[in-house]
Simulated assay, not measured.
Amino acid sequence: MGWGSFYKSKKPRGFRYTYLTFDPKKKELERKIRLSKHRVDPEANPLTEEDLKENLRGRLRRNSERLAKYGDPEDFSESIGKKNRQLVFVLAILFAFTYWIFESLGITTWADFAQLFIFW
């Protein structure tokens, strides 16, 4: 089947079946009740492994989405300032290089500059 292909074929999507008796609101309510009972008396109501995994998964997802969208808030102002300084520096070098090239070609006025393009 894959003898003549030069690219990696995509894997088929996984099959997910949601049962008809599944109620996500009820499951979320039960989870919140377990968490609140744990906050009141942690020794009598320990968290299940599922609660710990879900809490960690949700926290990681929220953090990664926020970082992907906005970046780290502490580094945001520094990164904008750094990017602006780099842009000004590159533009200054580009302007100096262009000026040096025009001086070496003997182009000192706008008329000389226009003649350069008319003859091309």
Rank of each mutant, 00 (worst) to 15 (best):
R34E: 15
T48W: 09
K53E: 14
F15P: 00
N63V: 12
G4H: 07
D112S: 12
N55V: 00
G106P: 10
N45T: 09
T109E: 04
Q86Y: 02
T109G: 05
S36I: 14
L47K: 05
A96S: 10
I118H: 06
G4I: 04
F102H: 11
E103Y: 11
L116P: 05
D72W: 08
W120H: 03
S79F: 01
S36M: 14
S79H: 12
E65W: 06
L56F: 03
K25R: 06
V88S: 09
G58P: 00
S5V: 13
L29S: 03
V90P: 00
R66E: 11
N84S: 11
K11R: 15
G2V: 03
K11D: 13
I93V: 05
E54F: 02
G71K: 03
R66N: 06
G58V: 11
F76Q: 11
E30M: 12
R39P: 00
F119Y: 01
E43C: 01
K26H: 01
A111M: 08
N84E: 15
P12E: 14
S77W: 07
Y70E: 15
G14W: 01
F15E: 15
E49P: 00
P42K: 06
A68P: 06
E65V: 01
G71Q: 03
N55I: 03
P12T: 05
Y19I: 02
E50A: 08
P24M: 01
P46R: 05
A68M: 09
T21K: 06
F117S: 09
N45G: 01
D41H: 13
K69G: 01
F95M: 04
K11F: 10
N63Q: 08
Y17K: 06
L20Y: 09
F22R: 07
E74C: 02
R61Q: 06
D41G: 06
A96Q: 14
R62S: 05
K27D: 03
A111L: 13
Q115N: 15
A111I: 05
L60S: 04
L67Y: 14
L87D: 12
A44F: 01
T48M: 08
R57E: 06
S5G: 05
I107F: 13
